[in-house]
């Protein structure tokens, strides 16, 4: 199984201790910087900051899991974007098949860095934020309780179903079921004996789980109280301030000073 049930890495860093809302503000700030600028010299800043923080927080193993994706988006971006970018500036690469101008290269590099920056910043967030904090963060942002409950339940069911999926796969393969044989269409059809047991097992429990919840007084309409609701501390406000500063600052630098374009 390629995916473990969580990417969260336990830690006691300042970033770990921030309230989920403050982490969201910081991450949004990094996203904004990567999104607003086109020039690689500017986009590299959030990329390096996010990567450095990720490694410092013990997220190297998480990065190793997605390194293939990061490399792939980089390569695909470098290949694809020049095809859709107006040529400009001196020719930097000339082959019998293709010519690459400075403008095309810088735009492609900037876009690839932006994509990589998004992935690594998102990874930084899930590395330092547990599933429970994620749901608490949604709730503290004003997302309705029923929705947060569904997300929380799905996050708890997910590892169980991931395990069940692996078990069903092994069981069917032990019976001689070969997922990789046949034409492409046949290979798609080969998944039917795997999907049905996973899906029916999960659905079968819905009625009893609903009854169990309602027997315990589950009511989405009633006003709810929460144990351990986290209010924003001083460090959280600082993080919110830094996130806002990154957002506003990058917009000003880009659109008022006109910097960061190719």
């Amino acid at each position: 199984m390629s995916a473990a049930s969580s990417l969260y890495v336990h830690g006691d860093s300042v970033f770990h201790r921030l309230a989920p809302r403050a982490k969201i503000a910081l991450v949004a700030g990094l996203f904004a910087v990567a999104l607003v600028f086109d020039h690689p010299a500017f986009v590299v800043v959030p990329l390096v900051v996010a990567f450095g923080t990720l490694v410092a927080l013990g997220g190297w193993s998480n990065f190793r899991r997605v390194r293939f994706i990061v490399v792939a988006v980089f390569v695909v971006g470098l290949v694809v974007w020049p095809l859709f970018t107006p040529a400009g500036g001196p020719i930097w690469l000339s082959t019998p098949v293709v010519e690459l101008t400075r403008n095309e290269f810088l735009v492609a590099l900037g876009r690839s860095m932006r994509f990589a920056s998004f992935i690594i910043t998102g990874l930084l967030f899930v590395t330092a934020t547990s599933n429970e904090e994620l749901v608490a963060g949604l709730r503290s942002l004003g997302v309705p309780f029923a929705f947060c409950f569904a997300v929380g339940t799905a996050l708890r069911l997910f590892p169980t179903l991931l395990g069940a999926t692996g078990t069903v796969r092994q069981a069917q393969e032990a019976r001689g079921h070969d997922l990789r044989s046949g034409s492409p269409l046949q290979r798609i059809r080969n998944y039917i004996p795997l999907l049905i047991p996973v899906f029916m097992t999960a659905i079968r429990n819905v009625q009893t789980q609903a009854m169990a919840l309602e027997a315990r007084g589950f009511d989405t309409q009633a006003e709810r109280t929460f144990y351990g609701r986290q209010s924003l501390a001083g460090s959280d406000w600082v993080a919110v301030g830094v996130g806002s500063l990154m957002l506003i600052g990058s917009v000003l630098v880009r659109y008022v000073l006109g910097m960061g374009t190719v």
């Binding site: 799905a154 997910f158 069940a164 999960a202």
Partner: peptide, 14 residues
């Protein structure tokens, strides 16, 4: 609500 959670979990798990 439980169907939302189960659908989400199945979709992500597969």
């Amino acid at each position: 609500i439980l169907l939302v959670a189960v659908v989400a979990a199945i979709y992500a798990a597969v």
